[in-house]
């Protein structure tokens, strides 16, 4: 193979890459916070919520988990405007990530809740907690603690999956890479660099989540 690798473009492209990294980081930050919040709300509905809401949430979860993120994104960005719901690329990307992570984290949290012994909830009720307080303290927190590793992995998966938001021209890291390689005609090198950046981001995110888990659930911090 006579191919000569060339990374001389890297310095000049740093600002574009950095902007891409910033947007990707921002997307996953917002996506994770609201996605997990949505997941908790849905898990609550499925455990204790009003009866009529349960099938709605169940359908949402199944629909999201059994369709590709790319199609969810296209549906939100290209499809919803036909209903008069318009939004910017970034908002659509964020919304898609929240909706996606919401469904997965609902399932994960639900599994954690099911592993909590029933008696615990009744014990909480007997301490005169309101159902919501009991849910929060007795059911949710231990469940979150139990499933934190699984939830963390899912958040990393959503971050990596967010590479496709470049397809609706949200200016994330992949968008930056696409832009750079269209200028330097060094596609392979450009994608190697962006792949390595994603890898670093994934490792960093995993560390951050592990640290956060240690802070939120100090007793079992080491697991």
């Amino acid at each position: 193979m006579t191919y000569q690798f060339d990374f001389s473009w890297l310095i000049g492209s740093l600002p574009v890459l950095l902007k891409g990294i910033r947007i990707t980081a921002q997307l996953i930050l917002i996506g994770a916070v609201f996605g997990v919040a949505l997941g908790i709300a849905c898990a609550w509905v499925r455990a204790l919520g009003p009866k009529w809401l349960k099938p709605v949430v169940a359908t949402y979860v199944e629909l999201i988990r059994n369709t590709p993120f790319l199609i969810q994104l296209f549906f939100i960005f290209f499809g919803l405007p036909s209903l008069g719901i318009r939004m910017s690329e970034l908002t659509a990307a964020n919304l898609a990530m929240i909706v996606n992570l919401g469904a997965y984290s609902c399932e994960i949290i639900r599994a954690g809740i099911q592993a909590t012994p029933r008696g615990q909830f009744e014990a909480g009720a007997s301490l005169a907690m309101t159902p919501f307080q009991a849910f929060w303290h007795v059911v949710l927190v231990p469940a979150l603690q139990r499933i934190w590793p699984a939830l963390s992995s899912q958040i990393v998966i959503v971050m990596l999956g967010s590479a496709v938001v470049s397809q609706i021209a949200a200016e994330d890291l992949t968008f930056a890479a696409n832009f750079i390689q269209s200028r330097n005609f060094r596609a392979f090198e450009t994608y190697i660099v962006s792949t390595l950046i994603y890898l670093a981001l994934a490792i960093l995110l995993r560390q951050l989540l592990a640290g956060l888990g240690g802070m939120l659930f100090p007793r079992k911090a080491s697991r």
């Binding site: 193979m1 990596l160 999956g161 496709v164 992949t174 994608y191 792949t195 890898l199």
Partner: peptide
């Protein structure tokens, strides 16, 4: 770890352009 820690989309790009390097 490499394949689980990077986006599938990037892997597709690398396969597409990487195989292209062989001419």
């Amino acid at each position: 770890q490499l394949f689980q820690g990077t986006p599938l989309l990037m892997q597709l790009f690398l396969a597409f352009f990487g195989l292209g390097l062989f001419g």
